[in-house]
Structures are given as structure tokens and as C-alpha cells.
Design a protein around this nucleic acid. Sequence first.
DNA 1: AAGCCGTGGGA
DNA 2: TTCCCAAGGCT
Length: 364
Amino acid sequence: MDAKDSIAPLLSKPADPSAVAPALLDWYDRHRRDLPWRAKPGEAPDPYRVWLSEVMLQQTTVATVRPRFVAWTQRWPTFADLAAADEAEVMAAWAGLGYYARARNLLAAARVIATEHGGALPRTEDALRQLPGFGAYTAAAVAAIAFGERAVVVDANVERVVARLFAISTPLPAARPAIRAATDRITPEQRAGDFAQAMMDLGQAVCTVRRPRCLLCPLSAHCAAQASGESERLPFKKAKPERPHRYGTIFWLTREGVSGREVLLVRRPDRGLLGGMRALPTGPWEEVQPGLANAPIQTDWRALNAGASHGFTHFTLDLALVTGEAHGAGEPAGEWWPIASLGDAGLPTVFAKAARAAMGMEAG
DNA sequence: AAGCCGTGGGA
DNA sequence: TTCCCAAGGCT
């Protein structure tokens, strides 16, 4: 080995980018995870299942997705089944998974696929990119994993692995163009789908955010960050703004229905936070507690010594809980839902929490 | 382009 | 407790 070879890792790049994919694919063939949406070796992938898994896994952990994926594919096993589904049922089936625009886009895309693509996904990245819910990542991932196209797949795992492999010290998100270019350099012509999944498995199990297991890494010999001892510090990230606090009121409005107690639910507007989801009525969410503003009806509201606190991505919400009994005059907007089967309403987590609190108070 | 958009788990 | 983060997309 001459001097040039020995300092190569210090030049902020793998000595030989073309050596990365073979080493990684060899590791993947021995350590790949067995996942419900993943084709077994030698099996043809099912594009519907690949697509659904990619959407469910956006910003969502494998542990959370696994049971939801199984339940979903039992209920809607194909594009055609999903395209024919009722929107309210689809939204309720997504309840608790978060980022609810994903569910709306999933259904919208299934219907476009049924009506304009003969019931099958297009194979190319560019064509996939035109469908609702397909951004740069998902289009590349589906093209590569479902159809074997050579696409450059970059998710948060790949960003981390590649930032370390090439010791890219520009903070995210400014580093994205450089990271994508570097990923392009190590993506193989063959098995691009396995390569992408291998990078993600590696990022999940070995090249982790904290305490990366560099001793177990099949790429350590090629890794610039490993050579310079800065694996755990990369990638750098721009600091995030601090999360503000907001306050609101939940109105737990009940009545005696034909088959037991019922509570008033509303449907949130299609766009915005928790868009299109069933919900408990709330007033505005503001920096100061808004009290009984925008109550669904005028009645004798009673404050409960309970509420719900919930962290969203960009603010924390504290909801006070008030209860009231519907009187005869004036029917409020919304739907009356049997309290005994509230679990079937498909409430987002913040409202499920509040409902539990309200029922606990009433039972106690 | 940067802010909006959920949730649950790990440290 | 609090903070960070995960197979991102949309505007």
C-alpha cells in the first residue's frame, strides 16, 4: 500500500465508490430483515404492497407500521379494492398513524391508477412522480423496489449513511444535493431496489443516529467518517425552532340516543391539521385559553377536572374538557355517535385521549 | 423555501 | 421530563 492509498479516507470520500454496493449487497443477502411487505429472495415484489408500505413508512417506524400494514392489506388487498373503498372508512382505518394527508392521497392515487393506468402502477420514476403522494423519495423507492429500475433512493437513513461514508460536513438540509450526488455514485445498475433496502436496513440496525455499530458495519473499510473518527457526529443538522404552546377547549356534548348514550362528533375540514378526520368539537387553538368560544350549542357547560395534552410536530396543545347535555332546541352540526362504540369512529390520537379522559370522569 | 403536517418510542 | 427522531410530501 502506498501513501496515497492510506490517506484516501481522509480525502472525504471512499477510496473506491464502486466497492460500496457489492459489500453492502453481500451483507444484505445475509442480514436482510423479514418484513410483511418485502418479497422473499427470488419472489416477485407486489407493487401494491411496496407502494402501501412506502407510504405507511413515511416518518413512521417499522414497529408501528407492521400490524397496520397487515390489517390494511387484509381489508383492501389490491389497487382495485382500495380504489372502490369509501373515503370515510379509509380515513378511519388510518386513524392513529398520523400525517392524514397520506391516506387521502393514497385513495386518490388508487383511483387514478384504476381509471387512467389500467389498474397497475406505472414503472418509471417520472410517471410515478405524477401520482398524489409520490414525492422524490417514494417515486424512486417504488421504481427501484417494485420494478427493478435503477433509481437513486434517498431517505433519512441514506442521508445519514452517505453523509458518514463521504464525511459530508455541510449541515442538513443544505447538504441534500451533495448527498444525492454521492448516493448516485454508489447506486448500482443491478439490484437498485435491494441496494436501497440494504441502505435502510443498515441505517436502522448498524449506522444508527446514536452509537453507530461501526465494528459490525460492512462498509467501515470504505467509510470516511469511520476513518476520521467522526461517525457519531455526522450528519450535522440545522437547529430547529422551538415548539410553541397552544390552548383550546374540547366540548363533550352528550345525549340519550335510541340505543344508549351518544356523543357529538364533527368532521374536520379537508385541509390542514387532522384534515378530513372525525373529531370532537373544539373551539380555536390559541396562545391563551379561549374558554367556551365556538361551542357547538349554548348550554350549561361544566368544566371537568381533566383534559388532554398532545405534542404535534410544530406545537404542543393543551385541551381543557367541558361537558354538556344536548337539549331539545337546535340540532348542532355533526353526527351523534354511540359512546359504547367510540373506538370504531377512527379518532386521531389527540381526540382518543380526550375521549378516554371524559369517559373516565363520567364513569368515576 | 421554509413551514406545515402526527405519532410513539428511545435515550 | 424532555427532546429527538422515523422508509417525506405539499405548498
